[in-house]
Design a protein around this nucleic acid. Structure first.
Lengths: 207, 207
DNA sequence: TTATGTGAAGAGTTTCACAGCA
DNA sequence: TGCTGTGAAACTCTTCACATAA
């Protein structure tokens, strides 16, 4: 099945596999089986193998997967073998927490947050966790110049669609959206929304 | 199809519908059609109707849905018509940002964050956005006494499973997890994970 | 003998299209 | 006439089970 177009659900699980592999001590366990991997993340060995089969053949029958080799392959598939320049709009509570968290975490390499944006003049020019805050007016230019390909949205829910449109016009290809509003992106652009309010309300059902 | 068990994907969309309804001015648009609702959130009218049909009959044929009535029904279905007591473990950057965000947002009613927990003695006794910080040692007791049914996890990735187990033993029914680690919950308990690292890595694929 | 890779079956979800009611 | 409610069809995703290779 190698090289058929992988569905989004599969793409979402790859980082999970990657994390398991990179936490493994490669000296102690240079080889891992789909069964071991599955157990750690709480899925089935069949699913692990099926997921990987979308991208090629990485294991040895009767043996398993070489951990370092598989993690290298996963990084290549996910395009995490090259620097990806990320911007973040909204230098408030959440925005600041996200940058700090990001900078602390080695697992985020090679995703690099290169600029923050805010409409508050008082914040412009400051640095948070070594990343400079620019005025949102400069968004279009900055995206171009810094070659920002991914944008994190963490500002209050006004004007979201307009801001997103500017980003897309200037070459942003994917968004991680924390803004609680319904927004649209065209074909070829990916948007994932993480809305705490909606998640909590959904969880209430199971209370 | 009314009263058949609704799948989780459907439950997840209900808060989305609810938000649209509650943003509507009920004087200007006392009635809304599945088509209008669908357009706003970017789905199909068929899906809206199908989703609602799991829970009963709420519309009038040839007319549409009465907005106030439908939002009341959705709140009832989601159990958002009664106070739900929520705890939050981890009073760091992210935890603090989450509480502040939560308190600011009227849409969060009747979900009430009643306690924060942290292992840092220096934080214990303080208040963040009017919510007191307790020591994590007191977790079991506090859950019992305050009748906490939902827990937000926002602490560094150590001991997560152990903490979750304590919560479950004491009656917590659902978790919103921001901890980047693989964890398991038994049947009957709901866990949703929001892992920024995994989301960003997954988005890289579309860059 | 062991664990992968993968068609085929099964389960779950979305879309379709139309009967039926206001 | 207009829009809901809903079976049935279409599609997507997961599980199964086995041929195959180390």
């Amino acid at each position: 099945m190698a090289q058929r177009k992988a569905p989004d659900v599969v793409i979402r699980r790859l980082p999970l596999y990657l994390r398991v592999l990179e936490v493994q001590d490669t000296n102690e366990s240079p080889i891992i089986s789909s069964e071991q991997l599955a157990k750690i993340i709480g899925t089935s060995s069949g699913q692990v193998r099926k997921d990987l089969s979308y991208f090629g053949v990485f294991g040895k029958q009767g043996v398993g997967y070489q951990t370092t080799l598989l993690s290298t392959e996963l990084r290549r598939i996910l395009k995490l073998n090259q620097e990806i320049r990320v911007g973040l709009i909204g230098a408030g509570n959440l925005g600041a927490a996200l940058v700090r968290y990001h900078q602390k975490n080695r697992a985020h390499q090679p995703l690099e947050i290169v600029a923050l944006f805010d409409i508050d003049e008082k914040k412009v020019g400051r640095k948070i966790a070594d990343v400079e805050v620019f005025h949102t007016d400069k968004l279009a230019n900055a995206i171009h110049e810094m070659e920002i390909k991914m944008m994190i949205l963490a500002f209050p829910a006004e004007n979201v669609q307009h801001i997103i449109d500017i980003c897309i016009e200037n070459g942003v290809k994917s968004f991680l959206n924390f803004v609680p509003a319904s927004v649209k992106v065209p074909e070829g652009v990916k948007l994932r929304t993480s809305d705490v309010t909606l998640e909590l309300q959904g969880l209430a059902y199971y209370t």
